[in-house]
C-alpha cells in the first residue's frame, strides 16, 4: 500500500516535470540566456570585428573563452578577452553621466509611465465596471472597447511610421478628435471670460484622454473577466445583510478584483516599456545602428531596474491595501 502511494506520487511528479519542461527549455533558450548575455555585454566593451564579437570584459572569464560555447557560431562568435584594468561599470557610468540625453529621457519616460499607468488603471476599471452592467447591445459595445488592442498592437502602429496615408490619418485624428473640440471649447470659454490657468490644466488632462483610452484595451478585458468571476451569490448575501451597493463595491468587488490590479500594472508598464517610438527607443535605436551594443545593453538594464523598482513599489502598496481588506 505504502509502495503504491509512493509510486503514484512519483508518477505525478514525473508528469509535472513533463508538463513544464517544454516551457522551461523555451524560456531558458529564448529569454534567460539572451538576458544573461545582454548583462555580460553591459559589463564589457563589445567590439564587432569581422570574426565576430569580442567582449573586453573585466569580469570572470579567462582570455579567449567563449560564452558557454552557445554563441560561437557561423560567421559570428563571441569571444571574451579578460582585461583586468577595464572598469566593469564603465557603460553604466557613461549612460548616466556622459551621455547628454539619457538621464533626461529616462526621467521623462518614468514620469510618463507613472501618470499613465495610474490613469489607465482608473479608466479601465471604471469602464469595466460600466461594461459589466446589463444593457442593450452590450456585446457590441464591448467589442468596440477591445478595438485598440487590435489596432494599436497591430498593423496601424507599424504602418503609420512609413506611410504617407497614415501620416495624413494621424494629422486628421489630431484634427478631428476631441483635441480640436477642446480647443474650440477653450476659445469659447476664454471669450466668455471663464478662462484661466485652471481651465488649461483641465484641458491638458482631457487632451491626454485619447492616449490613455487607447492604451486601456487589454486592461479593460482583464478587469472585466475578473468582475465576471465574482460569484453573484456574494452580492446576494451582502444584499440580504443590508449592504449598500457602495459598501458591496469596496467589500466585495474591489477585493475580489484587486489581484488583477497587479496583473494590469505589470501589463501596462510592460506595454509602455516595449512600445516602439518613444524618444528613449530612438536613442536605443541609434546605439544599435552604431554598433554600441554595450552602451545599449547598459541603458536597457538601467531602464529595466528603474521599471522593476516602480513595479515593486506598486506591488508593495497594493499588497498592503489587499491585506487590510481581508
Amino acid at each position: 500500500m505504502k509502495n503504491l502511494r509512493l509510486s503514484m506520487k512519483g508518477r505525478r511528479a514525473v508528469s509535472g516535470y513533463l508538463f513544464i519542461m517544454p516551457f522551461i527549455i523555451g524560456f531558458v533558450v529564448f529569454m534567460a540566456a539572451p538576458l544573461i548575455m545582454s548583462l555580460q555585454m553591459s559589463f564589457s566593451e563589445v567590439i564587432v570585428s569581422k570574426n565576430g564579437f569580442i567582449f573586453n570584459s573585466y569580469f570572470g572569464l579567462s582570455d579567449g573563452q567563449t560564452l558557454g560555447g552557445i554563441y560561437a557560431a557561423g560567421g559570428f562568435s563571441a569571444v571574451f578577452k579578460a582585461i583586468p584594468d577595464l572598469l566593469g561599470l564603465d557603460n553604466y557610468v557613461h549612460a548616466l553621466t556622459v551621455d547628454p540625453t539619457f538621464n533626461q529621457l529616462l526621467i521623462e519616460e518614468i514620469t510618463k509611465i507613472a501618470t499613465h499607468t495610474i490613469a489607465i488603471l482608473v479608466v479601465a476599471f471604471v469602464i469595466a465596471l460600466l461594461l459589466n452592467q446589463e444593457f442593450k447591445g452590450r456585446a457590441f459595445v464591448r467589442a468596440i472597447f477591445f478595438l485598440p488592442v487590435i489596432l494599436s498592437s497591430g498593423v496601424l502602429v507599424n504602418l503609420e511610421t512609413d506611410n504617407t496615408l497614415m501620416q495624413g490619418m494621424q494629422e486628421l485624428i489630431s484634427e478631428q478628435t476631441p483635441f480640436t473640440v477642446t480647443d474650440s471649447m477653450m476659445e469659447i470659454l476664454r471669450l466668455t471670460g471663464l478662462g484661466g490657468d485652471l481651465l488649461d490644466i483641465v484641458f491638458e488632462l482631457i487632451a491626454e484622454v485619447y492616449d490613455i483610452v487607447m492604451g486601456a484595451g487589454i486592461q479593460i478585458v482583464v478587469f472585466l473577466s475578473g468582475l465576471q468571476n465574482v460569484p453573484a451569490s456574494l452580492y446576494e448575501a451582502a444584499d440580504v445583510e443590508g449592504c449598500t451597493k457602495w459598501e458591496a463595491f469596496w467589500m466585495i468587488t474591489f477585493p475580489m478584483v484587486s489581484p488583477l490590479l497587479i496583473v494590469n500594472i505589470i501589463y501596462t508598464i510592460i506595454d509602455f516599456f516595449t512600445k516602439m517610438g518613444g524618444d528613449l527607443t530612438d536613442l536605443l535605436d541609434e546605439k544599435l545602428l552604431n554598433f554600441r551594443y554595450d552602451h545599449m545593453s547598459a541603458m536597457s538594464w538601467i531602464y529595466f531596474l528603474v521599471t522593476l523598482a516602480m513595479i515593486g513599489i506598486c506591488a508593495l502598496i497594493i499588497s498592503k491595501v489587499v491585506a487590510t481588506d481581508e
Binding site: 529564448f30 529569454m31 540566456a33 555585454m41 557560431a73 516599456f273 536605443l284 536597457s300 529595466f304
Partner: peptide, 14 residues
C-alpha cells in the same frame, strides 16, 4: 519586463 532591445542581438546570435 524587458523590451526587445535587450535580447535582440543575443537572440540573433543564438
Amino acid at each position: 519586463m524587458f523590451n526587445g532591445y535587450v535580447t535582440a542581438i543575443p537572440n540573433y546570435l543564438l
